[in-house]
């Protein structure tokens, strides 16, 4: 974990209410896909936790949805802005159990961490399938980026305006896979949990005080004992989750 200054290099709107940032700084503490950073914003007491979407050299990419005052402020920040970023937080996904044909399932703001994961898995020569779930066609992002990695991409929209009509679980039956990785809103995670006999890893969200394990603000119960989502998670394995 490292607290250091990142400079905003690129900021663009990539879908409805959704922004992509490329920031430059010391990324050396980011060790696994599924980890997150905690961003200090002027005028806000608590930092904002956002997943690592991609990391290459000194460039850190994040993708976020505007949902409140903090993310609204972020969307309006000019390129060149400097931000204090706590990086290298959380355990991240474990690539080892993926098997040859992993399935990645991302819903809405849970899609970003799937990108670095897909990039790492395709680099390892895995045949990667991806389901991207959104509400509607205008919310879709990163479909082409996943395709460029050589992943098999399925899109679902709740209103049927593009791809399979329905939820991510509606696209799952037609895909054969060895293992899965998922991130998204909790009802989606639960549906994936109930809808798949395979094993997999789930990334959870929780309201955070610190983001690095000090405050016990984000604790959940697992079969392996109490875990702090920020430090012992955000990724939990299917076998330990209590639902």
């Amino acid at each position: 974990m490292l607290d250091s200054i990142f400079t905003l290099k690129e900021s663009r709107k990539i879908a409805k209410n959704t922004y992509e940032w490329v920031m430059e700084g010391d990324t050396s503490h980011i060790t696994a896909p599924g980890q997150f950073v905690n961003i200090k914003l002027d005028g806000f007491y608590l930092r904002r936790p956002i997943s690592v979407a991609d990391v290459e050299g000194n460039n850190l990419t994040i993708v976020y949805k505007v949902v409140g005052e903090g993310t609204e402020k972020m969307a309006n920040m000019p390129v060149g802005s400097e931000l204090l970023v706590l990086s290298g937080l959380g355990n991240g996904y474990d690539l080892a159990p993926s098997g040859d044909a992993p399935l990645l399932i991302g819903g809405g703001a849970g899609v970003p961490p799937m990108f670095l994961l897909a990039r790492r898995l395709t680099t390892l020569g895995k045949s990667v399938s991806v389901i991207l779930g959104f509400g509607s066609a205008d919310e879709i992002f990163y479909k082409d980026k996943f395709e460029k990695l050589g992943a098999e991409v399925y899109v679902t929209t709740a209103d049927g305006s593009e791809g399979v009509k329905g939820f991510v679980t509606d696209a799952m039956p037609e895909i054969s896979y060895s293992y899965f990785y998922t991130c998204g809103p909790e009802p989606m995670l639960k549906a994936v949990y109930d809808g798949s006999s395979a094993s997999g890893q789930f990334s959870f969200e929780e309201r955070m005080g610190c983001g690095f394990g000090a405050c016990m603000g984000c604790t959940c119960e697992t079969k392996y004992g109490n875990k702090r989502i920020c430090r012992d998670g955000p990724v939990l394995v299917k076998e330990e989750i209590i639902w």
Partner: peptide, 15 residues
């Protein structure tokens, strides 16, 4: 949880 909420220049906790 949620055990944490933000406030102006502070935070609420119910750990």
């Amino acid at each position: 949880t949620p055990r944490i909420a933000e406030a102006h220049s502070g935070m609420l906790n119910a750990v």
